[in-house]
Write a protein that binds this DNA or RNA. Structure first.
Lengths: 126, 126
DNA sequence: CGGAATCCCAATCGATACTG
DNA sequence: CAGTATCGATTGGGATTCCG
């Protein structure tokens, strides 16, 4: 199992940002974190997450959640009932990350229009 | 063309964070931004960037820079000399993003150890 | 209901070669 | 030196199916 970092360590330790972005930069991760963050203390069930993430497949949601859980950003609680219920929530670590993600989100909402405007324009002031 | 991905716009406008992360989450983007940020006002030449990014190919560096330029995050200055010299620098927009990236970087450096510790552990307090 | 396993396609990335 | 074009290898991601 080639661990995510197990690859050739070009200069990984020098740039943990890359490692982090590799995780939160994946297609669904940021959304899961966002949804869990919005839930506050509330835990969210697998099916509900899936319901609120149109377009996600079980595989990806499952995979994303497993990654986040393994990274200690998300906590998983299983109710050993007959139809098993699995609840997810952000760990304190995940919450601390969410703060920065929120900052990024804010930046995005503020400046995305600029970016969109710039696209195909590239006209800087020399 | 609909969007950079050309794919179906599931709920893009609802989550600009995703769009942003799609950009800065790519393999080399964050590093380019970081290097340009470290250069301060200093512009950095293509070759120097490549030199300071072991493992990157011209293609990817070029592609990354073009994306960033198109997004208005990076400015490109060309000296029309015989051996053309192209200088890149962060735009104010790019710099404003770098602030948040720095925050993320800081978080990563602070908590990456925790994440690393958690990996393969998954032992939350239930 | 949750999720693991399989299969498959599409996008991405890397290496090379060629142009201005 | 800077950049593009092409090709091949790798990967991520989606649909489906089966198991607890």
């Amino acid at each position: 199992m080639t661990s995510p970092t197990g690859r050739g360590d070009l200069f990984s330790p020098a740039c943990p940002t890359r490692l982090l972005l590799d995780r939160i930069g994946t297609k669904w991760t940021s959304m899961v974190v966002k949804l869990l963050a919005e839930a506050g203390d509330g835990e969210v069930r697998f099916a509900e997450l899936q319901r609120r993430m149109p377009g996600v497949s079980q595989k990806m949601l499952s995979s994303t959640l497993r990654s986040l859980t393994n990274d200690g950003l998300v906590a998983r609680r299983v109710e050993p009932t007959v139809p098993p219920k699995v609840h997810y929530r952000l760990t304190p670590l995940g919450q601390s990350l969410e703060v920065h993600l929120a900052g990024l989100r804010d930046w995005a909402e503020t400046h995305m229009a600029e970016i969109d405007r710039a696209r195909g324009y590239a006209g800087e002031t020399t």
